[in-house]
Design a protein around this nucleic acid. Structure first.
Lengths: 206, 206, 206, 206
DNA sequence: GATGAATGAGCCTTCATTCAT
DNA sequence: TATGAATGAAGGCTCATTCAT
């Protein structure tokens, strides 16, 4: 009653998600997508401007949620944090689990972004995401450095490559279709594995 | 008796490598490859069964060298190693540098395998490589466990996760086109970053 | 009793005129036309049978006015004209200006007919118009011939060629978007340019 | 023996010419063209870069001949002509016939250029051709003016529109498929009809 | 009457692979 | 053995027109 009838949309989006997931953006066939959704190509073009627009629509809420999530978690300026908060930011045990929980909620959209987006505006999602995280993280690190909490020097570039690797590790269980339980185990393991304190020159707290 | 004259091959392989690196296997154009190599498509098909066969040829020596390298390094049965050797296998400072030196030697082939192989039989190279390493590594770990050098339990699956994370970090500088100097620095960083002793339950040596 | 409410029509017609003028009949987009007119395609199809019908509607009053104008100007049977009238019909100084004034009044519709009608029933407007004029003109010429005002023989086909050439020259300033002042100047030039007396065998009056 | 076998090309070009002539560039269907030529679409793309390239190929010799013809006829700088030559340039009786003979030789290509080129780089052929002729003609006229052979002032713009009309008249018999005999008659008629001497202010020589 | 989503054939173009020469 | 023209299915996309609501 409130909204106009969009009952066909979910069918297209669902079908598109399936195809994009299975074959990647570039090799995905609109004909297959339309066929699966019992819709003609023309109908698709009524709602979406093209193949990429369709991809973006499939992925839109994931992207939005991701932005919101990142925003919320990096809202606090480095300068406002206590020394303790600044240091413990690297002991990510529950922080990571929160991340995994969040990403698991947007599982398919996230996999699309990291695995099937070649050819779309999200082609560099992994890189851009690492970049975003790097910027914020480096800012915190610099603040810690200024306060004398560490004496190690890490350039943006080095931090970027370390975080790229780290986040690639985060992506992995999604790409390989882990169950939630597996992901939980994965989370704990990699938190134990990555010794950020040592790399960044903090006093180990663990 | 020896091999037939393959004097034209290098041009094709070089050209193919360039194109595969630049555009990835799927988007690479045989026409471009043949054009750059001053060779006709027909000639190409005389020597290679098809696009994928060409890719495999480009990558063949890297794959072979990789196998040989892995084989050599894991030739010794776990049981024959001293306790010390078993434990220090994880403090990989020079071990890693050896790896990096090796991989840097096969730079392009390696990048092809980890970045441009989608659509070929090497699509899952990263995963498969981690798998390979996991088997051998787990065997060593089990031996260490048996000897009481650790009391932590790590399943094959967990070991796979850990090694995937680790190797992902190793790949990173290649993907990002690091110079050798940068890779050397990265190597040191990596060794600091990974907390193998903690994860595997060895006495911290650092 | 009178006409049904057509209050929305002007918007469609205006929008259609704009689009047809800008892109020609074939490349004009009904979607654009409907969008500009704030009307749905369905609504358009309620009033018009299709794209061509719409074009015809846009052009209808121009066509009607043209017919009326031609009719009025050729109402007098050739036989009823004086010798003088018959001959001076070709020294068209003010006759032409009257024509130009008339065409300028129906500027857009006329341009549509001569420039944008490919694909419609008016595709051959130029040719058909020349044809129409030819019939009447030839009749006058024959009458003049009969009265001995000329001894030249001009067939219908030849007359058609001559009038085609003449009217093509008339169209030109419309196609080129001349202002009224430019058209007025053009009109004078035209009268100088065409050597009707020589072609038709009248005594030069100029 | 000298040339490689291109025996299939004529079939494509012939078929393309037919289709372009019949439906215009934009509505012409490559499938139809290929079908008529007993060739697959792929084959077409081996020889031509695309639809427009095909059109250009069909029209290439006409364009070349046209350029050469124009070049040859306007090679003489205005300043080098005698007064007589300058004036009689406008009494085009045999000049026009030469033109018609030439155009008739390239009949189909010429029709393609003036009637079927919308959407190609030759879309503005008519206009550009008129422009070319205008430039040269105006130069001659200016020279005549300088020498006092005329006192009339005609701007480039006015000349352009007059020549546009004139050349449109030249095109007409081609567009309407006149036979050579009809064209010859047409040529004579329009030369009689257009009174360039009067418009340009020369002493009538006829 | 009005809506506008849906239709669906057709568009031009690409490219790994084949095969007659 | 080498050639490279030919294949032909498949690609994404357009748009005048229809019809259930």
């Amino acid at each position: 009653m409130s909204k106009p009838d969009r009952s066909i949309d979910p069918r297209i989006l669902e079908s598109a998600k399936k195809e994009f997931l299975a074959r990647g953006f570039e090799k995905a066939s609109l004909k297959t997508i339309c066929g699966d959704a019992d819709v003609t190509t023309g109908a698709l073009y009524k709602r979406f401007k093209g193949k990429e627009d369709l991809f973006c629509a499939v992925v839109a809420d994931t992207v939005a949620a991701l932005h919101a999530f990142v925003e919320k978690r990096s809202a606090a300026p480095a300068a406002t944090l206590t020394d303790d908060a600044l240091v413990s930011a690297w002991n990510m045990d529950d922080g990571m689990l929160t991340w995994f929980r969040f990403l698991y909620q947007y599982h398919d959209g996230f996999v699309l972004l990291i695995s099937s987006a070649a050819g779309t505006r999200y082609a560099n999602f992994q890189h851009d995401f690492a970049e975003t995280m790097t910027t914020k993280t480096h800012e915190y690190f610099l603040e810690a450095h200024k306060r004398g909490l560490t004496h190690v020097d890490i350039s943006m570039e080095e931090m970027h490559i370390l975080l790229s690797a780290f986040w690639t590790t985060v992506y992995e269980p999604f790409i390989h279709g882990y169950t939630w339980d597996q992901i939980e185990a994965h989370s704990k393991l990699i938190c134990k594995l990555f010794n950020w304190n040592r790399v960044l020159g903090f006093h180990a707290t663990t």
